[in-house]
Computed example of a mutant assay.
Amino acid sequence: MAKKAGPVDDTAWMKEAFVDVQAELAIKIKRASQSIEHAGTQGSVNEDHWIDIFRAYLPNRYEVATGFVIDSEGNRSEQIDLVIFDRHFTPTLLDQQKHRYIPAEAVYAVFESKPHFDKDYLEYAGGKAASVRKLHRTSVAIAHAGGTFKPKDPFPIIAGIVAPKSSWADGLGASFNKHLPSSLPELLDCGCALNDGAFDNFDGALKLVPKEGALIYFLFRLLSKLQSLGSAPAIDWSAYAAIINKPGIT
């Protein structure tokens, strides 16, 4: 008597397609490293590749761009490679060419795009995250048909790092774990090294996944976390307007 065929895995095609997306991004980054000698230009090209990926998989309510984050007290962050922010309710300010100036209230997440994971780049990304998290964020009540929504408490800003690979022989192993910034304000919540895997601590403990499908896993986990944050706080534009009337400003 012939055996019955086992159940068909209808998700296999989807996994293979997502793995191909990861391979395509890795090839683009490798091509940039082979064809562009200037490190700064190569870095900018790779940032653009990562921005394209984020934009392709995040809903339109989230914008992704390189820029500075600013607050209503006149402070600004260091330049951030990838900022995920609310574009629907919050415009960027003082933009010049590719230099975006993004109100801190609009920011959901910040990422650094680097050539690899190592101790220095992890610390560097943590420092960039801290420069954003220290900024002041306002929040005001929102009027609606039934009354008024109370001001929303600003949510914790997500921070992470992306790269084509890890520099450690064990990938995202003990050395990576040892040097990963794990406390605020330098905390790195998530990241992806295309050739070695992805990580996040969204569930309260560090979770690591291997290389295959790591990019899409990372993006879907990030999307889930962004959804949990809800809408960005309503910005207090009067606080920004007050900057214009400060003594010494004409």
Rank of each mutant, 00 (worst) to 15 (best):
K114A: 06
P115V: 07
P115T: 12
P115L: 09
H116I: 01
F117Q: 05
F117W: 12
D118A: 03
K119S: 13
K119C: 08
Y121L: 14
Y121D: 05
L122E: 00
G127V: 04
K128G: 06
K128H: 13
K128W: 01
A129K: 02
A129E: 03
A130W: 04
V132E: 01
R133K: 09
R133I: 07
L135W: 03
L135V: 06
T138A: 07
T138Q: 08
S139R: 02
V140M: 10
A141G: 13
A141S: 15
I142Y: 10
I142S: 14
H144N: 07
H144M: 05
H144T: 03
A145P: 04
G146Q: 13
F149N: 15
F149C: 11
F149M: 14
K150H: 10
P151K: 09
D153W: 10
F155H: 10
F155A: 15
I157F: 02
I158K: 01
A159P: 00
A159D: 00
G160N: 04
I161K: 00
V162Q: 00
V162F: 00
V162T: 03
P164E: 07
P164A: 09
P164T: 06
K165C: 08
S166N: 03
D170L: 05
D170Q: 07
G171P: 05
L172A: 04
G173K: 08
G173A: 09
A174D: 14
N177M: 13
N177K: 15
H179K: 11
L180V: 05
S182N: 15
S182Q: 14
S183W: 06
